[in-house]
Design a protein around this nucleic acid. Structure first.
Ligand code: FES
Ligand code: FES
Lengths: 133, 133
DNA sequence: ATGAATGATACCATTGAGGTATCATTCGTC
DNA sequence: GACGAATGATACCTCAATGGTATCATTCAT
């Protein structure tokens, strides 16, 4: 049960790296060379980050990506949501079939509490805070 | 990102049901009839619970399972560990290859904190506490 | 004897994650 | 202008885990 999947993890590393170099442009080849993040995979990942507004892209030779958001505005929780869907650890597994008790179910209630704690902690984690750490 | 998978969820429901009926014997057919937990699946699940000591089994006609542990001793966190592996949300995804920094990595540190909070909360959740809830 | 139950195990199907490949397009450089 | 290096878009592939089923032997109450 991992909180981050590989894509999110890669993205975090790449963004930390880029924040350290900002506002330089960084290509996926650079990432492959410097961080050993596999280029084809990162191309896909970076397109998602670009569409989400974290990066701008430049095509052509010497192209690449430029970090658009400031490091303290890039929250880990948003990256997780982007690549893995919103953090929600207590979805009822009897989806709408047998059970309508999502609000009252004691099991869900406990899990919701954990989720809330996790979320409030997560919201404080940004690329900037990870660089300082 | 669900904290519980279906097997764990089924197991929790079944155990709550059994705790309510204890010390009656309950068969997987009963569970299918009463809770709509699919019998073949629960057979497998209950064998695991039995081997782990939560249940004893009786073969033959009118056979079934008897709850062995008391409801307040059955902790959710242990059921999760049993069916999904130990709760550990911050395993490094560069397993031993590129990175030796598990101890110092700021990302892992944050996640470890969340994990610790979640675990301490989870340890308080038992079948008994879920019944009261 | 029969039927209902578990023990043990093998099997199956679907899904998602991780990763690759392809083709078109853009753009700097020679 | 040709070439190479980069992204845009998208399709594809592979593998493992999850959820679920099936089978056969065994046990036991009736
Ligand atoms: S059973 Fe669906 S939320 Fe409790
Ligand atoms: S990169 Fe492995 S723990 Fe930080």
């Amino acid at each position: 049960m991992n909180l981050l999947n590989r894509t999110t993890d890669y993205a975090v590393r790449a963004l930390i790296y880029m924040a350290g170099k900002a506002p330089a442009r960084v290509s996926t080849s650079d990432l492959d060379r410097e961080l050993h993040l596999p280029r084809p995979f990162m191309r896909k990942t970076f397109q998602i980050l670009q569409k989400a507004g974290y990066l701008t892209s430049l095509k052509g030779k010497n192209g690449g990506f430029i970090l658009q958001a400031s490091a303290d505005k890039i929250r880990l929780v948003d990256l997780i949501a982007l690549f893995q869907g919103p953090v929600s650890m207590g979805d009822c597994l009897f989806k709408k079939k047998l059970c309508e008790c999502v609000r009252t179910c004691p099991l869900r209630r406990e899990i919701k509490q954990i989720e809330t704690m996790a979320l409030s902690h997560l919201r404080g984690v940004t690329i900037a805070s990870l660089m300082k750490g």
